[in-house]
Design a protein around this nucleic acid. Structure first.
Lengths: 237, 237
DNA sequence: CAGTGGTCTAGACCACCCA
DNA sequence: GGGTGGTCTAGACCACTGT
């Protein structure tokens, strides 16, 4: 039924968003204001907003309101350019917050890396921002034998992978990626300032060095429209 | 607010889904029936269903009802194993329908491949099923000079890439992928039997041969929870 | 034609954010 | 404390699917 009112509403809101985008303040008016303006109810209005959210045109910050979404970030998970580098290269402003570090076993990491389940890891959990919007919550588990003293280092402002190569001479030779569309769970959602159940994209990486020794396992949870994944391959057939 | 009723409902429905999953018929009862059973309204019930849909536990076929979702398909877009092969390898049943073939210019393909915009292509549009559920709508544009006579061949039951290698001796040496979370547009949604705006995953591929000649460009639109993308890389740092 | 999901109304109260 | 989004009610009619 393409003549549903919320479809029409979606198009009208799209125009509004384009106008807002030109302005500084990319925030939409209150739902009640919009509903009144378009002579409909909040339910129908929210249906249209949800539609635009699904397209990645707008997003909401939990209980704060609706905002125009910036263009997605290009991201190549197969390259080890640091987050800071590729965000800056796209004219955006990166920021990283470390939420926690510890040393302990972690079953999924152990299984992915083929280690025994009581293997301990250096664990880093952090949150990353683009232009002051939290877009990524991630956890890394590094095999301590590969990078002794890692947690004493400055693993935030410098690229972690750069350090693994530079300080410990590791070659990140074998990498396995898994990408999956998900609904963000309570913890990640809270860290990213969105409602639980918001659409996300999960990236899991398992890395071995040139001697096939396990190096690292990590899980990334992205706001799903914050990124466009790109991969360039040469001669891998 | 984790004590919202729809959250509780979500958990109850999750149990119901697990039970249904064991049975043959993976269809949920009617919304009105469920709403009455849980002593709530359809609005609230649908909120819980939408939550589970976002998690990929259930999906709907437009106006037909809600169904338990099967596990996602593992898919490596960097390998050129045919769809039929890797679906079967996972114990699932593949099927392909050709929706249309023609020969004409296509601007996005031309731009991606670095050709002039009046370049014509062999165009194939098809729909692919896993266990009789339509999960993928795709269009391919092949440079005619690379594969003369392609559209007369049996490009359906055999792997297209296999033919490019076998019949025309092409090496698919340089590949560029773009993955993006999207909302399915009217045409793809209709082909997949879902409502427009349903969450999807878009995969775009650009391929050059060993001599860097343009070979093919394609766009895939997947139901977003129908697949888990996996990529294995060796020594690419 | 009966039953289903899709859309919509006109309200209401609550939890949280920010000034 | 005022305003915001988040949740919820109790209905209604429409469009489509399947028999």
């Amino acid at each position: 039924m393409s003549d549903a009112y919320y479809i029409h509403l979606t198009e009208r809101l799209r125009e509004l968003i384009n106008d807002l985008d030109a302005c500084e303040e990319g925030r939409l008016p209150a739902e009640r204001t919009l509903a009144e303006h378009f002579r409909t109810t909040r339910v129908t209005l929210r249906q249209a907003l949800a539609h635009l959210e699904g397209e990645g045109r707008i997003h909401r910050s939990n209980r704060r309101g609706w905002f125009v979404s910036p263009p997605p970030l290009d991201y190549d998970p197969t390259r080890d350019a640091g987050f800071n580098d590729y965000v800056k290269a796209q004219g955006r402003r990166p920021r990283t917050e470390v939420l926690l570090t510890d040393t302990r076993p972690h079953r999924p990491a152990a299984e992915a890396l083929g280690l025994s389940t009581d293997q301990t890891f250096f664990h880093i959990r952090r949150r990353r921002f683009v232009d002051d919007r939290a877009v990524l919550s991630e956890s890394l588990w590094v095999v301590p034998e590969r990078a002794p003293g890692l947690l004493e280092g400055d693993y935030v402002s410098h690229s972690l992978w750069g350090q693994l190569r530079g300080r410990w001479g590791l070659t990140l030779a074998h990498r396995s990626l898994r990408l999956y569309s998900e609904a963000l769970r309570a913890q990640e959602a809270e860290e990213l300032g969105v409602a639980a159940g918001t659409a996300g994209l999960s990236v899991r990486r398992t890395i071995f060095d040139a001697r096939r020794r396990p190096v690292e396992y990590d899980e990334e949870h992205w706001l799903h429209h914050a990124l466009c994944i790109t991969v360039d391959l040469e001669n891998t057939s």
